[in-house]
Simulated scan of single mutants.
Amino acid sequence: MNYKAITAASLCALMLGAGAGAAETWRYAFEEAMDEVQGKFAQKFKEEVEANSDNEVQLFPFGTLGESADIMEQAQSGILQFVDQSPGFTGALIPEAQVFFVPYLLPADEGQLIKFFRDSKAIHELFPPLYADQGLELLTMFPEGEVMMTTTKPIAGPADLNEVKFRVMTNPLLVASYQAFGATPTPLPWGEVYGALQTGIIQGQENPAFFIESTKMYEVANNITRAGHNNFTTAVMANKEFFDGLSDADKTVVRNAIAAAFDYTVDYQSGLTETSLQKIKEARPDVTITTLTEEQRAPFKATAAAVEAKFLEIGGPQAKPILDQMKADLAAAAGN
């Protein structure tokens, strides 16, 4: 299904909400369903805002207002007050955000990963001005789970990705990463992915296990490979003009709600990957789930330096400071 079209009724409803009294009605769109990780974060944010202020938060899950590009445009224009979107899509606006697609940069250890996202100077100090330049207030970034490949044939190494048309987000560095892996990267809007796998237009895609399970990607690509190459990252932003115009009290409400939603979502994700994989096996017993050994991962890891170099080439003027700071932040999270 393609959700590109936005109904006139939806836009009309949003624009009416932008009139008198709209300061108390905040609209928040995200890239997943209500029962997926971004939806859980959004619901907790709404709960906290409404419990601690007179404001109301309206939630718009994926497809309600269009594809990822649509909701970003609506957030920048002020139709939406809040948006949750992966750097995979904001990379075109903020090239430095592509750093999250350097393979094997983020740690596999969950404790280190969460500490990094909580404390990272790159996230909390270096990225906000870059988002502000695009009319966005960066409120937080958080991980959504280990990224896994789902393909129509088994994958044990880069040679198995040769000539595989692999769906990627519209992100130049992610394209470069899968080129380095040996695949043929094929950018597609999410709404077209299931059908493209079903008809053979593409032969693979990547996402966390919960998303593979909830969207039933295993029905059209029954090989799941855990190469350990990344963790899906997303960012919650506000329209900057809207946020700057809030009272100090409302800014505090927003920031506290974001912090509470972050903690809630971290707890919610505990054990989610393995539970989701088990549900997939129960739904389709013939699904193959392969965790690559360190020896099998080695040729994938060997591509990281080239992708990192590509990031420094295309990642914008702050690419090197951000990459250097992220490495320092990751070392601190690891206790080094």
Rank of each mutant, 00 (worst) to 15 (best):
M1A: 15
M1S: 15
A20G: 01
A20N: 03
A23G: 14
E31G: 05
E36C: 07
K40V: 09
S53A: 11
V57H: 07
F60R: 06
D70Y: 08
D70E: 14
I71W: 07
M72A: 09
G88Y: 10
G88N: 01
Q98S: 15
V102G: 08
P107H: 03
E110G: 01
L113D: 09
R118Y: 02
R118C: 02
D119S: 09
K121R: 14
K121E: 10
E125W: 02
E125H: 06
F127Y: 15
A132H: 14
Q134D: 07
Q134K: 15
M141H: 04
V147E: 10
T150G: 00
T151V: 12
T152E: 12
G157N: 14
A159H: 02
D160H: 10
V164Q: 12
R167A: 15
T170M: 13
S177T: 15
G191Q: 00
V193M: 02
T199A: 13
I202K: 10
K216C: 06
M217W: 11
M217A: 11
V220L: 07
N222P: 06
H229S: 04
M237N: 05
M237E: 05
A238V: 09
N239V: 00
K240M: 05
K240I: 11
E241Q: 15
F243N: 00
F243P: 09
G245M: 10
A257P: 05
A260L: 08
F262I: 08
S270K: 14
L272G: 08
Q278S: 15
E282C: 05
A283I: 08
R284I: 10
V287L: 11
E294Q: 13
R297F: 04
A298S: 10
P299V: 09
E308Y: 04
A309F: 11
K310R: 15
A319T: 12
A319P: 05
I322L: 14
Q325H: 08
A333N: 09
G335C: 11
N336E: 10
N336H: 02
